[in-house]
Protein backbone atom coordinates (compact mmCIF):
# COMPACT_ATOMS: atom_id res chain seq x y z
CA UNK A 1 0.00 0.00 0.00
CA UNK A 2 2.79 2.39 0.89
CA UNK A 3 4.36 1.91 -2.56
CA UNK A 4 1.12 2.76 -4.32
CA UNK A 5 0.39 5.84 -2.22
CA UNK A 6 3.93 7.08 -2.66
CA UNK A 7 3.72 6.67 -6.44
CA UNK A 8 0.30 8.35 -6.54
CA UNK A 9 1.59 11.35 -4.59
CA UNK A 10 4.62 11.78 -6.88
CA UNK A 11 2.84 11.13 -10.20
CA UNK A 12 -0.32 13.09 -9.49
CA UNK A 13 1.79 15.93 -8.10
CA UNK A 14 3.91 16.35 -11.21
CA UNK A 15 1.07 15.72 -13.67
CA UNK A 16 -1.37 18.11 -11.97
CA UNK A 17 1.47 20.60 -11.58
CA UNK A 18 2.13 20.48 -15.33
CA UNK A 19 -1.57 20.94 -16.11
CA UNK A 20 -1.94 23.78 -13.63
CA UNK A 21 1.13 25.46 -15.04
CA UNK A 22 3.02 25.54 -11.75
CA UNK A 23 5.50 22.79 -12.56
CA UNK A 24 8.41 24.98 -11.45
CA UNK A 25 6.93 25.31 -7.95
CA UNK A 26 6.40 21.55 -7.80
CA UNK A 27 10.03 20.91 -8.72
CA UNK A 28 11.19 23.50 -6.19
CA UNK A 29 9.02 21.86 -3.51
CA UNK A 30 10.63 18.49 -4.21
CA UNK A 31 14.13 19.88 -3.77
CA UNK A 32 13.23 22.04 -0.77
CA UNK A 33 11.53 19.14 1.01
CA UNK A 34 14.50 16.85 0.44
CA UNK A 35 16.57 19.42 2.29
CA UNK A 36 13.98 19.79 5.03
CA UNK A 37 13.97 16.02 5.54
CA UNK A 38 17.74 15.96 6.03
CA UNK A 39 17.56 18.91 8.42
CA UNK A 40 14.87 17.19 10.49
CA UNK A 41 16.93 14.00 10.68
CA UNK A 42 20.14 15.82 11.56
CA UNK A 43 18.24 17.92 14.08
CA UNK A 44 17.39 14.69 15.88
CA UNK A 45 21.04 13.79 16.50
CA UNK A 46 21.50 15.77 19.72
CA UNK A 47 18.24 14.89 21.39
CA UNK A 48 18.52 11.30 20.20
CA UNK A 49 22.01 10.94 21.64
CA UNK A 50 20.90 12.45 24.95
CA UNK A 51 17.90 10.15 25.37
CA UNK A 52 19.68 7.00 24.23
CA UNK A 53 22.36 7.76 26.81
CA UNK A 54 19.91 8.30 29.66
CA UNK A 55 17.88 5.25 28.60
CA UNK A 56 21.01 3.10 28.72
CA UNK A 57 21.61 4.25 32.29
CA UNK A 58 17.98 3.43 33.13
CA UNK A 59 18.39 0.01 31.54
CA UNK A 60 21.59 -0.82 33.47
CA UNK A 61 19.91 0.22 36.71
CA UNK A 62 17.00 -2.13 35.97
CA UNK A 63 14.47 0.70 35.71
CA UNK A 64 13.31 -0.08 32.17
CA UNK A 65 12.69 -3.74 33.01
CA UNK A 66 10.92 -2.79 36.22
CA UNK A 67 8.69 -0.39 34.35
CA UNK A 68 7.99 -3.04 31.71
CA UNK A 69 6.92 -5.53 34.39
CA UNK A 70 4.84 -2.92 36.19
CA UNK A 71 2.61 -2.15 33.19
CA UNK A 72 2.64 -5.62 31.65
CA UNK A 73 -0.99 -6.29 32.68
CA UNK A 74 -1.95 -3.45 30.31
CA UNK A 75 0.48 -4.23 27.51
CA UNK A 76 0.21 -8.03 27.63
CA UNK A 77 -2.73 -8.18 25.23
CA UNK A 78 -1.39 -5.50 22.90
CA UNK A 79 2.16 -6.78 22.55
CA UNK A 80 1.76 -10.50 23.05
CA UNK A 81 4.85 -11.23 20.95
CA UNK A 82 7.13 -9.26 23.29
CA UNK A 83 8.34 -11.00 26.49
CA UNK A 84 6.86 -9.53 29.68
CA UNK A 85 10.00 -7.92 31.08
CA UNK A 86 11.64 -7.02 27.76
CA UNK A 87 13.10 -3.47 27.66
CA UNK A 88 10.98 -2.80 24.55
CA UNK A 89 7.90 -2.63 26.76
CA UNK A 90 9.55 -0.13 29.08
CA UNK A 91 10.53 2.10 26.15
CA UNK A 92 7.04 1.84 24.62
CA UNK A 93 5.45 2.98 27.87
CA UNK A 94 7.85 5.90 28.24
CA UNK A 95 7.15 6.97 24.63
CA UNK A 96 3.38 6.84 25.11
CA UNK A 97 3.65 8.73 28.41
CA UNK A 98 5.73 11.44 26.73
CA UNK A 99 3.12 11.71 23.96
CA UNK A 100 0.26 11.99 26.41
CA UNK A 101 2.04 14.78 28.29
CA UNK A 102 2.88 16.55 25.03
CA UNK A 103 6.65 16.17 25.48
CA UNK A 104 7.37 16.01 21.75
CA UNK A 105 11.13 16.33 22.20
CA UNK A 106 11.33 13.29 24.41
CA UNK A 107 8.65 11.23 22.66
CA UNK A 108 10.49 10.68 19.38
CA UNK A 109 13.82 9.46 20.84
CA UNK A 110 11.99 7.19 23.29
CA UNK A 111 9.85 5.86 20.45
CA UNK A 112 12.90 5.15 18.30
CA UNK A 113 14.50 3.40 21.27
CA UNK A 114 11.39 1.22 21.49
CA UNK A 115 11.69 0.44 17.77
CA UNK A 116 15.33 -0.62 18.25
CA UNK A 117 14.35 -2.93 21.08
CA UNK A 118 11.50 -4.41 19.01
CA UNK A 119 13.88 -4.87 16.10
CA UNK A 120 16.07 -7.08 18.33
CA UNK A 121 13.13 -9.52 18.53
CA UNK A 122 12.64 -9.45 14.77
CA UNK A 123 13.92 -12.34 12.69
CA UNK A 124 13.24 -10.65 9.38
CA UNK A 125 14.96 -7.32 9.63
CA UNK A 126 13.28 -5.54 6.72
CA UNK A 127 9.72 -6.45 7.74
CA UNK A 128 7.59 -4.99 10.53
CA UNK A 129 6.57 -7.30 13.38
CA UNK A 130 3.08 -7.44 14.88
CA UNK A 131 4.32 -5.55 17.94
CA UNK A 132 5.79 -2.77 15.77
CA UNK A 133 2.56 -2.34 13.82
CA UNK A 134 0.59 -2.19 17.07
CA UNK A 135 3.02 0.27 18.65
CA UNK A 136 2.83 2.61 15.65
CA UNK A 137 -0.95 2.21 15.45
CA UNK A 138 -1.24 3.59 18.97
CA UNK A 139 1.49 6.14 18.38
CA UNK A 140 0.10 7.61 15.12
CA UNK A 141 -3.38 7.90 16.57
CA UNK A 142 -1.88 10.09 19.33
CA UNK A 143 -3.31 10.56 22.76
CA UNK A 144 -2.56 14.11 23.90
CA UNK A 145 -4.15 15.58 27.00
CA UNK A 146 -3.51 19.25 26.27
CA UNK A 147 -3.19 20.45 22.65
CA UNK A 148 -1.03 23.38 23.78
CA UNK A 149 -0.04 24.79 20.37
CA UNK A 150 -3.61 24.81 19.12
CA UNK A 151 -4.89 26.49 22.27
CA UNK A 152 -2.17 29.09 21.78
CA UNK A 153 -3.27 29.80 18.21
CA UNK A 154 -6.95 30.06 19.18
CA UNK A 155 -6.09 32.39 22.02
CA UNK A 156 -3.82 34.65 19.96
CA UNK A 157 -6.57 34.88 17.32
CA UNK A 158 -8.77 36.35 20.07
CA UNK A 159 -10.74 33.24 21.05
CA UNK A 160 -12.89 33.71 24.15
CA UNK A 161 -12.51 30.27 25.69
CA UNK A 162 -9.87 28.32 23.77
CA UNK A 163 -9.47 25.61 26.40
CA UNK A 164 -12.95 24.24 25.72
CA UNK A 165 -11.49 22.28 22.80
CA UNK A 166 -9.76 19.98 25.30
CA UNK A 167 -12.79 17.80 26.05
CA UNK A 168 -13.75 17.16 22.42
CA UNK A 169 -10.08 16.62 21.50
CA UNK A 170 -9.66 13.93 24.16
CA UNK A 171 -12.83 12.20 22.92
CA UNK A 172 -11.71 12.31 19.27
CA UNK A 173 -8.20 11.08 19.98
CA UNK A 174 -9.53 8.27 22.18
CA UNK A 175 -11.81 7.13 19.36
CA UNK A 176 -8.91 7.21 16.88
CA UNK A 177 -6.71 5.15 19.21
CA UNK A 178 -9.47 2.60 19.82
CA UNK A 179 -10.05 2.26 16.07
CA UNK A 180 -6.28 1.92 15.54
CA UNK A 181 -6.03 -0.96 18.01
CA UNK A 182 -9.07 -2.78 16.61
CA UNK A 183 -8.00 -2.22 12.98
CA UNK A 184 -4.51 -3.45 13.82
CA UNK A 185 -5.85 -6.69 15.31
CA UNK A 186 -8.35 -7.28 12.48
CA UNK A 187 -6.19 -6.33 9.47
CA UNK A 188 -3.32 -8.37 10.93
CA UNK A 189 -5.47 -11.46 10.39
CA UNK A 190 -5.73 -10.89 6.63
CA UNK A 191 -3.55 -13.37 4.70
CA UNK A 192 -1.97 -10.47 2.82
CA UNK A 193 -0.56 -8.98 6.01
CA UNK A 194 0.27 -12.16 7.89
CA UNK A 195 3.84 -13.17 8.57
CA UNK A 196 4.82 -16.62 7.42
CA UNK A 197 6.07 -18.70 10.29
CA UNK A 198 9.46 -19.41 8.86
CA UNK A 199 9.93 -15.67 8.47
CA UNK A 200 9.27 -14.66 12.01
CA UNK A 201 8.79 -16.14 15.42
CA UNK A 202 8.67 -14.42 18.78
CA UNK A 203 11.57 -15.27 21.00
Amino acid sequence: MINIIWAVLILSGFIVGAINGNIQEVTDAAIANAETAVNIALGLIGIMTLWLGIMKVAEEAGIVKGLARLISPVTKKLFSDVPADHPARGAIVMNLAANILGLGNAATPLGLKAMQELQKLNNKKDTATDAMVMFLAINTSSVTLIPATTIGILSSAGGTNPTNIIGPTIIATTVSTAVAIIACKLLGKLPKYQLKHDEYSAK
Partner: peptide, 12 residues
Amino acid sequence: LVAIGVFRASGA
Protein backbone atom coordinates in the same frame (compact mmCIF):
# COMPACT_ATOMS: atom_id res chain seq x y z
CA LEU B 1 8.56 14.51 2.45
CA VAL B 2 9.41 14.95 -1.24
CA ALA B 3 6.30 13.02 -2.30
CA ILE B 4 4.12 15.05 0.07
CA GLY B 5 5.77 18.33 -0.99
CA VAL B 6 5.20 17.62 -4.68
CA PHE B 7 1.58 16.68 -4.04
CA ARG B 8 0.90 19.80 -1.99
CA ALA B 9 2.62 22.27 -4.32
CA SER B 10 0.83 20.97 -7.42
CA GLY B 11 -2.68 21.77 -6.28
CA ALA B 12 -3.66 18.11 -6.65
